[in-house]
Amino acid sequence: MKFILSIAALSAGSVAAFAPSAFMPKSLSVASSSSLNMALADGVKPIIIGVAADSGCGKSTFMRRLTNIFGGDVVGPLGGGHGTEGGWETNTLVSDLTTVICLDDYHINDRNGRKESGLTALNPIENNFDLMFEQIAALKNGDTIMKPIYNHANGTLDTPEKIEATPIIIFEGLHPMHDDRVRDLLDFTLYLDISDDVKLNWKVQRDMEERGHSLESIMASIEARKPDFDAFIDPQKKDSDMIIEVLPTALDKDDKKTLRVRCIQKEGVSDFSPCYLFDSGSTIEWSPAADKLSSPAPGMKLKYGTEDYMGKPSQVVEMDGNFDNLQELVYIESALSNTKTKYYGELTQAMLSLADAPGSNNGTGLMQTLAAFAIRDLYEKKSAIAAKALNEKAAAKA
């Protein structure tokens, strides 16, 4: 079955809203991780999530959306926080329920060491998968680890930091699904897939406009990383449970700013069921009515359908275009089902709470928020299963 509904179109948007780096903290003071972590209940094991993406592809913004949904009054920095008055450089984000660990911390060499080896950080040889596996296994068992730190500010390997297990632990970076042993420990996997054209726009926004790099140096950096990206990072899509794919708009071939974002949800994943638009299993194209959702040119279109993605049956929700008024997102929310929200309007509320974050007026923010709710739902299901098993064990002993 295929629905094609009517259209709406008004004026243009801004590329600044798409730049992932715009939401990254510059400098934050950090408390001890042990003072922030919520202790695990006896017998409860953490849920382990893997998030893969290239550098500068929006992992930081997604992590903030995720920790925002899980809650927590205190959140440490992600992506390089420079502590003051005795603080330290850390890549770890910690809230009451969630710990986010950057896999850059498992680089074997510092920046100078990689210059000598001639290898990029994308090359598995430059990463310590034995230690990564050992420490992820320890955290999944509820144990405490001393995790290394890669200092992004000066490219050095710093003194390891103490990480205690929290109910949800996310490993984000270049290689969360590369090593079979590590991949087998993950309860859910997500891949942020940014097309080459969009990645260039984002990198120009961050490195040229914010860091003063030349276009030539940016292009050279991208070209130098591409062979290793294609060989070692991109193949992880095959092993991901969900892929958020960011592409240029298909509504206007001359528009270089508007984004088309697809959320690819693989079927048959334990404790996970895909979100859908209107009618599960159908093929749908929908352009929201202009009097209910204002959208600048070239307009907006949503799609949903099933497809075979890299040999796996999948369900795909797609959004192409921007909206002017974030509060009107509730109209789109009303058309989505199985979003894993607890009440109508929670999706819109979550987006509004981070209204200034990159992607909050387009599909990147929407799909990242849907992924965050899916992870929350997965955590609650697995926690319920674990609690039931503990109760049954206690009852058997009584």
Score class of each variant (00 low, 15 high):
1 M>G: 15
2 K>M: 14
10 L>H: 11
16 A>C: 12
18 F>A: 15
21 S>G: 14
28 L>K: 14
30 V>A: 15
32 S>G: 15
39 A>D: 02
40 L>W: 05
45 K>D: 04
48 I>E: 02
56 G>I: 03
57 C>W: 03
58 G>M: 01
65 R>Q: 13
65 R>L: 15
66 L>I: 06
66 L>N: 04
67 T>P: 09
67 T>C: 15
71 G>F: 07
71 G>A: 13
73 D>H: 11
77 P>W: 05
79 G>L: 02
86 G>A: 14
94 V>Q: 14
98 T>D: 10
105 D>P: 01
107 H>K: 13
108 I>A: 07
112 N>C: 00
115 K>L: 11
116 E>S: 01
118 G>R: 02
126 E>M: 09
128 N>M: 05
139 L>W: 04
139 L>N: 03
145 I>Q: 04
145 I>A: 03
153 A>V: 07
162 K>I: 06
163 I>G: 14
163 I>E: 13
176 P>R: 03
177 M>Q: 05
177 M>W: 02
181 R>L: 10
199 K>V: 01
201 N>D: 02
208 M>E: 10
208 M>L: 14
209 E>Y: 11
216 E>D: 13
222 I>S: 06
223 E>W: 07
227 P>I: 03
228 D>P: 09
234 D>R: 12
235 P>I: 06
238 K>H: 13
239 D>H: 12
242 M>Y: 06
244 I>D: 01
244 I>P: 02
247 L>H: 02
261 V>I: 02
262 R>P: 00
263 C>D: 05
270 S>C: 09
280 S>I: 02
280 S>Y: 09
281 G>H: 11
294 S>E: 08
300 M>E: 04
301 K>T: 04
301 K>S: 04
307 E>S: 15
308 D>E: 12
308 D>A: 14
312 K>P: 05
318 E>K: 04
318 E>F: 00
318 E>L: 11
320 D>Y: 01
328 E>C: 04
329 L>M: 15
329 L>D: 03
331 Y>C: 08
331 Y>Q: 08
337 S>W: 06
345 G>S: 13
353 S>Q: 07
355 A>N: 08
359 G>D: 00
373 F>E: 05
379 Y>K: 13
383 S>A: 13
385 I>T: 07
385 I>G: 12
391 N>L: 12
393 K>V: 05
